[in-house]
């Protein structure tokens, strides 16, 4: 059976989640838990690297929607990176690029945080 895995890397004040496999209504709670942990720890500068994600449904997209408000209220953001074209198409269909910054490479996303001081980044696209 294919599954879903999350790896986390903390670098200074930025945390990067590496998500792998299939993100659907069955596996979305795992991502929810990981994001909740970050929020509980007060880590609001989050990059999500999609390079190894094979599949996403609206249940997975909904998880990001569930956290973005809290994270931005705390001067943070959820920035997305390394999205395979197939995954990007789903984000695009739903208009998510209007809400989320999507970067080709995780380093760009991480550097964006580094350059943002303590203020939130709203228009880094």
């Amino acid at each position: 059976m294919s599954g879903f895995e999350i790896r986390r890397k903390d670098d200074g004040c930025v945390s990067t989640l590496y998500i792998k496999g299939f993100l659907d209504a069955h596996t979305a709670p795992q991502l929810e838990r990981s994001l909740q942990e970050l929020v509980n720890e007060g880590r609001f500068r989050i990059v999500v690297n999609f390079s190894e994600l094979s599949y996403i449904s609206s249940a997975g997209l909904g998880v990001f929607m569930g956290f973005i408000e809290t994270v931005r209220k705390n001067q943070g953001d959820i920035k997305l990176s390394n999205m395979p074209p197939k995954i990007y198409r789903v984000f695009d269909l739903l208009g998510f690029p209007l809400i989320y910054e999507i970067y080709e490479d995780e380093r760009q996303a991480q550097e964006k945080f580094a350059g943002s001081g303590t203020s939130s980044v709203e228009d880094g696209r």
């Binding site: 449904s57 609206s58 249940a59 997209l61 909904g62 929607m65 569930g66 973005i68 408000e69 789903v90 269909l93 739903l94 208009g95 998510f96 209007l98 809400i99």
Partner: peptide, 22 residues
Amino acid sequence: DIAEYLAELRVGGLGIYLIRSL
């Protein structure tokens, strides 16, 4: 209007919207 919908950070109904788009 998906842009307006997302601006309100809502989630429910995205699946049905996707089905129509796909």
